[in-house]
């Protein structure tokens, strides 16, 4: 299904912080693989492992959490909580025989367009190799 089209990446972005950064990337005409799809949620620590696993099951090659980091408007525990979700999901992925590296997280601030593009490029490259 994904042959020759590049690896499909699902990005969970957050409405206030990382989604504006992804918008900004487009605004600045920065390019990243067109197989990157974004779903936005209020806060990165709200991502359920179940959604991530669903994405893998349905055929996504990688999932990327564009986290709020310390800029989170809700609470500073966001970074920790998001990290915990990731590590729990990594466990689930191992059980299912999915390579944990296919789930990544990085803090993307609201103007971090360039870091986001870099993340996407390197992630896509990594996924296409593995």
């Amino acid at each position: 299904m994904t042959e020759n089209k590049g690896s499909k990446i699902l990005v969970f972005s957050t409405e206030k912080i990382s989604d504006p950064a992804i918008d900004l990337a487009g605004l600045l005409k920065m390019h990243y693989p067109p197989t990157v799809y974004t779903i936005n949620i209020p806060c990165s620590s709200a991502v359920k492992s179940r959604w991530i696993m669903h994405a893998f099951n349905k055929g996504f090659d990688g999932v990327f959490i564009a986290a709020d980091g310390t800029d989170c408007a809700f609470d500073e525990s966001c970074t920790d909580n998001t990290a915990k979700v990731i590590s729990r999901t990594h466990e689930l992925m191992k059980e299912k025989g999915i390579e944990p590296a296919r789930l990544k997280m990085a803090a993307i601030c609201s103007v971090c367009a360039e870091p986001f593009v870099k993340q996407m490029k390197s992630f896509a490259e990594y996924l296409s190799k593995s």
Partner: peptide
Amino acid sequence: CGMCLPVCPVNAIQLIGYTDVEIESMIEAL
């Protein structure tokens, strides 16, 4: 904020507007 969603061991919590069916059907559509 939804911080409570992923910690529930029995998946009893849904965030309105971001429910499992919504997110999962979007994933399927994508």
